[in-house]
């Protein structure tokens, strides 16, 4: 399988008070294949979110290369990065991050707004179908505050899919959910992965990481371990 996401000698420094450097990522080398399902783990402060921000084109590395589908993203203009986010990437956040004033369908539609596509009946149909797929077919016109956390996260998943992204980035997608709901969300992600979606997910919990095909552990800005997980997948039926 071809690498869809690859980072080479990736460094990220933050500067406290403008000059005191904090080295967060210290020369990361990672490559994720198309169709893979990766769990990023590591202790708090190890740089997982920092890496995810760079992978999500929300931040730029201090040094090193980030190849997305073969192209070097690290030095692109701000507008170009926005375009990449809206066309190639899907985001799922720990805090769901839906817009409270919008309905479920409007939230799902949002990435398309910024792609500049004509919002017609076809795109509307797609949003509705995605909402139905994540089990919210009866709540199309609800607002986020009228939904439970699990339901909001489903909306976020539908939203991350609407632009048919190359990669879905999820930073602690189950961090705010109880274990039962977490399992539902993980089932959903696994289904997506089976359908061919590349997923990179940050998590602190081993049983969540167990849903992934590959587990990468970071420590102090470097890769600590990198294990394939394909053999011991949890039993799907056990969750029910």
């Amino acid at each position: 399988m071809a690498a869809i996401v690859e980072v080479i000698d990736l460094f990220k420094d933050y500067f406290l008070e403008g000059h005191i450097p904090v080295n967060v990522l210290k020369g990361l080398n990672l490559s994720f294949d198309e169709g893979d399902f990766v769990a990023l783990m590591g202790p708090s402060g190890s740089g997982k979110s920092t890496l995810m921000n760079i992978l999500g084109c929300l931040d730029r590395p201090t040094a090193g290369q980030y190849l997305l589908n073969g192209g070097d993203v690290a030095r692109m203009s701000d507008d170009r990065l926005s375009e990449i986010r809206s066309t190639y990437l899907g985001f799922i956040f720990q805090a769901y991050n839906l817009l409270p004033q919008y309905t479920v369908v409007e939230n799902i539609e949002l990435p398309l707004v910024y792609q500049g596509v004509r919002l017609d009946q076809k795109t509307k149909d797609r949003c509705v179908a995605l909402a139905e797929m994540v089990g919210l077919g009866t709540r199309l016109d609800h607002r986020p505050l009228q939904l439970s956390g699990g339901q909001q996260q489903r909306v976020a998943i539908a939203r991350s899919l609407v632009n048919d992204p190359h990669v879905i980035l999820a930073d602690e997608p189950t961090g705010n959910l109880d274990s039962r709901t977490s399992v539902e969300i993980m089932q959903m992600l696994r289904e997506l992965n089976k359908a061919g979606k590349t997923i990179i997910m940050v998590t602190h919990e081993n049983d969540i990481a167990a849903w992934a095909r590959r587990v990468v552990r970071l420590r102090d800005g470097l890769v600590e371990s990198d294990v394939r997980n394909d053999d011991h997948q949890p039993d799907l039926t056990a969750a029910h």
């Binding site: 004509r118 795109t123 797609r126 632009n163």
Partner: peptide, 27 residues
């Protein structure tokens, strides 16, 4: 749930976004 039943995503417009004439009404 089957992602293959979902209607395809519209192909993105290069250089999209910004405030076009059509978009003003929506904005």
């Amino acid at each position: 749930m089957d992602i293959f039943d979902i209607p395809p995503a519209p192909s993105p417009v290069s250089g999209g976004g910004g405030l076009g004439v059509v978009k003003i009404g929506r904005a």
